[in-house]
């Protein structure tokens, strides 16, 4: 019999619930969630950090769960799409995605929603972005900011325009104003 691959114990919380797992060290956080805990809401689109479908929140910060080993998350608190809301009790972002049809096939959607929730927090926290005119100032809660910060979540169905509107609604940004700001290529130096 071949030698068994190294396995390790790891404990972390997922959506508030403690999980104690014994895992092959190679298991990614993504595969731990899907294949070992049975939370299939987090998606595997590319498994290489190139699509964002696997986005989850770890200690409140969004990451690609495909590019992180489960054993590196000892003691962490993980929030997945299932932890944000349920069909009976949608998170405001989930409700806004339904209202604005911010998805089609639905496969990138959990990652988009986890990212969208985190992006609004990142803007509020003043984290700078590529589209800021002056990174020395606080970023604005605007559609161009949201679009740039959401760019790590690919949607091949092309629901971007609707996702931006869903996010704007949750953020309380008036859409009519921000559409004007979309023409920033040209205004921005």
């Amino acid at each position: 019999m071949a030698q068994q691959p190294p396995a390790m114990a790891v404990t972390f919380k997922v959506n508030g619930k403690a999980q104690a797992l014994m895992l092959d060290t190679r298991t990614t956080l993504l595969d731990a969630l899907r294949d070992h805990i049975g939370l299939m809401g987090t998606k595997k689109g590319c498994d290489h950090g190139q699509c964002g479908a696997c986005t989850v929140l770890v200690n409140g910060t969004r990451i690609n769960s495909c590019l992180s080993l489960a054993v590196m998350h000892e003691g962490d608190a993980v929030t997945t799409i299932e932890g944000l809301g349920t069909p009976e009790q949608l998170h405001p972002m989930q409700a806004a995605f339904v209202k604005h049809d911010g998805f089609q096939c639905g496969y990138c959607t959990p990652g988009q929603i986890c990212s969208a929730v985190a992006v609004l927090e990142e803007i509020r926290a003043g984290i700078p972005s590529h589209v800021q005119g002056d990174v020395g100032t606080a970023p604005e809660m605007s559609l161009p900011e949201m679009r740039e910060r959401m760019s790590g979540n690919i949607c091949r169905c092309g629901a971007y325009s609707n996702i931006a509107e869903a996010m704007a609604e949750v953020a309380g940004v008036r859409i009519a104003e921000t559409h004007g700001a979309q023409s920033d290529a040209g205004a921005e130096a």
């Binding site: 950090g49 990212s115 003043g126 972005s129 990174v135 020395g136 910060r149 760019s151 790590g152």
Partner: peptide, 26 residues
Amino acid sequence: LAADRRVRKDYGVLTRAIVAGASGQL
């Protein structure tokens, strides 16, 4: 690093370079 107040103020090129790379998650 990109968000650090001192970096943004005195080393803006570094903040700008970092936020031009990869994605927010990465």
